[in-house]
Design a protein around this nucleic acid. Structure first.
Length: 423
DNA sequence: TCTGGGGTCCTAGGACCC
DNA sequence: TCTGGGGTCCTAGGACCC
């Protein structure tokens, strides 16, 4: 029996999260900004209707935001991560055969349903998620993941679907695919959209009908797979046990320019602590570390970008060891005379902690340092990330990322829980 | 003044080996 | 004049995703 996929996607996820705990935002335009309150990364429907684009710098639309009383939020990833988990746990109850694809999307395998039942089930899931979490979702159903993505798009944009659309029950699929622009197909980015357009291919239905050899030559195996998926031949299966991570990164723009090595060392040290926490959270250790730094490409003035990759002597998840290597790296690439905007620390060559190949000459007391790291992570989990920090991360931190308009961590910090007033 | 962050996969080309 | 062939591994860069 051919598979059937449903894609459940949260509507305007970050904006919806803000709304759940602040009901007076219902019906109002909302935007959520990236780190340092730089760009728009989420918009409510009302904000989209004002013509606010995805990724637009906040300063460029400031007058518009003010004129329409748009509610502006800094991003609050602690809140969004927790809300995501609630949504996914709800979906899990409906369909354990699922893949959490991103913070706001999951693919489900719906087998053994008739067409009528599928749509009904979609509506039940949708209303349950809304009732249990407050988050509105849309459901797209089809025989491949790529088509389920398209079905979801239709569900989201066509009010009379009630938020659920089953492409298998669509009487004229070609007409529908003819209305989907090729750049809106999952897997077609700006570059391939341009290439396809030059060959007269502008809609999903045209893409579906291209010659196999031609698409293989133009877009490689990925392109051919995509076209097969559009034809209803499933090539992308559910990935239920996610492959172990290959890399972990912490890279961030600074809240204020850095122009001294000391401050750069603080920032890199702080970013390394963060990525090391992620590493331990995944129960992995790293064998390769890359540090990078860059000036502001948007500004005039001297530019400098550089990165350095260091092979670690022994795979480690121990923050001080990682900081030592990162600092050694940043010293080597740092040049005086620039205004730095951003730095990053990436860990690669990840191996499960249980399988670390130790060095004959490695005298480090690993048992002791593991206990220390657990204690550190425990304190930070209890009191909030950054409660306990390494001195090398600095104290004043003028460079720290700015979040001027952040909502409370409504669901993860006792002192920030929403208060319900009796009245 | 002010422009995000974190990932994956594929491919082409070079180095190296037999 | 004439300059193999095939395999593997690694890396950098491109393209895409949310």
């Amino acid at each position: 029996m051919p598979p059937i996929f449903a894609l459940v996607d949260c509507n305007n996820f970050y904006a919806s999260c803000e709304r759940v705990f602040n009901p007076r935002l219902e019906g109002q335009p909302i935007v959520v900004l990236s780190n340092n309150d730089g760009c728009v990364i989420a918009r409510s429907n009302e904000a989209k209707a004002l013509g606010i684009g995805m990724g637009v710098p906040e300063f460029q639309i400031r007058p518009l935001l003010r004129a329409h009383k748009v509610q502006v939020f800094s991003s609050n990833y602690t809140l969004y991560g927790d809300m995501s988990q609630r949504v996914m746990e709800t979906l899990e109850q409906f369909c354990p055969d699922n893949e959490i694809y991103s913070i706001d999307e999951a693919f489900l395998r719906l087998s053994g349903f008739t067409a009528r039942n599928r749509t009904d089930y979609g509506h039940t899931m949708r209303s349950t998620v809304k009732q249990w979490t407050g988050i509105p979702v849309s459901v797209g159903i089809a025989e491949t993941k790529t088509l389920a993505k398209i079905a979801n798009r239709v569900a989201k944009r066509t009010p009379d679907t009630g938020g659920v659309f089953d492409l298998l029950a669509c009487p004229d699929r070609d007409a529908l695919l003819g209305r989907i622009a090729v750049h809106d197909v999952w897997g077609i980015g700006p570059n391939h959209a341009h290439l396809l357009k030059q060959h007269g291919i502008t809609t999903a239905v045209q893409l579906q009908q291209v010659d196999d050899q031609w698409i293989r030559k133009q877009m490689g195996i990925v392109g051919l797979r995509l076209v097969m998926e559009l034809r209803g031949v499933s090539c992308l299966d559910l990935e239920q046990c996610p492959a172990p991570k290959q890399s972990l990164t912490c890279s961030r723009a600074f809240g204020a320019f850095i122009s001294t090595l000391t401050e750069m060392e603080e920032a890199v040290s702080s970013y390394t602590s963060r990525v090391a926490e992620k590493l331990r959270g995944e129960r992995l250790a790293a064998t390769v570390l890359t540090v990078s730094l860059t000036t502001n490409a948007f500004k005039d003035g001297p530019q400098y970008n550089n990165a350095l990759t260091i092979k670690l002597p022994v795979a480690t998840d121990h923050t001080p060891e990682l900081i030592r290597s990162a600092l050694q790296g940043i010293k080597a690439v740092y040049r005086e005379g620039y205004q730095y905007k951003k730095a990053g620390v990436m860990l690669m060559g990840l191996v499960p902690v249980g399988q670390v190949q130790t060095d004959l000459f490695d005298h480090h007391d690993r048992v002791r340092s593991t206990r220390l790291m657990s204690a550190l992570d425990g304190v930070n989990a209890r009191w909030g990330l950054g409660a306990l920090q390494y001195a090398s991360s600095g104290i004043t931190k003028k460079w720290k990322t700015q979040f001027h308009r952040r909502s409370p961590a409504y669901t993860t910090q006792w002192d920030e829980l929403p208060v319900v007033k009796a009245g």
